[in-house]
């Protein structure tokens, strides 16, 4: 089981933002997180940042995992972070995977996104990162 300190399963929304049809990676991640005992809401492809924020809000997710292979990783992540913040979801852990060029990493870092996992990332590393960084107790 992957539980938070409060003893509940970690809830993760994984999805893809923008017009990017590469969905193999996101499916691999969804299954890996499930096998690690997490509850994974797979929200599919081509979501807008606003839709994603609403989904994270409704599902009371601890973590949002974005998979971006389109080359627009920085603007899409920024817009999604803004949409989350607009819903008061500042405490949601944002992790990003896919094609992330080196220059983009520093940009993402500035947005506060530390969990970045490109091709060849080990699943154990991703699971470990989420377990270690998932937000603790959250207010009602």
């Amino acid at each position: 089981m992957s539980e938070t300190t409060a003893g509940r399963p970690i809830r993760v929304v994984v999805t893809k933002v923008g017009l990017d049809g590469h969905d193999r990676g996101v499916k691999v991640i969804a299954q890996a997180l499930r096998d690690a005992g997490m509850e994974v809401v797979y929200a599919g492809l081509r979501r807008t940042p606003e839709e994603i924020a609403r989904i994270v809000l409704e599902e009371d997710a601890d973590v949002l995992g974005l998979s971006i292979l389109s080359g627009a990783v920085v603007p899409l992540t920024r817009r999604t972070r803004e949409a989350l913040d607009a819903q008061g979801l500042e405490d949601v852990l944002l992790v990003v995977g896919g094609i992330v060029p080196v220059e983009s990493r520093t940009e993402l870092d500035k947005l506060g996104v530390k969990g970045i996992f490109g091709p060849g990332s080990s699943l154990a590393e991703i699971i470990g990162y989420i377990r270690d960084n998932v937000p603790k107790e959250r207010a009602l």
Binding site: M1, D35, A36, G37, E39, E51
Partner: peptide, 19 residues
């Protein structure tokens, strides 16, 4: 999953309605 307790909840994929 009865073994890991994990789950993939995939019913939202179909919902394309605007928030």
């Amino acid at each position: 999953s009865p073994i890991t307790g994990g789950a993939v909840l995939g019913d939202r994929i179909r919902s394309t309605e605007a928030p």
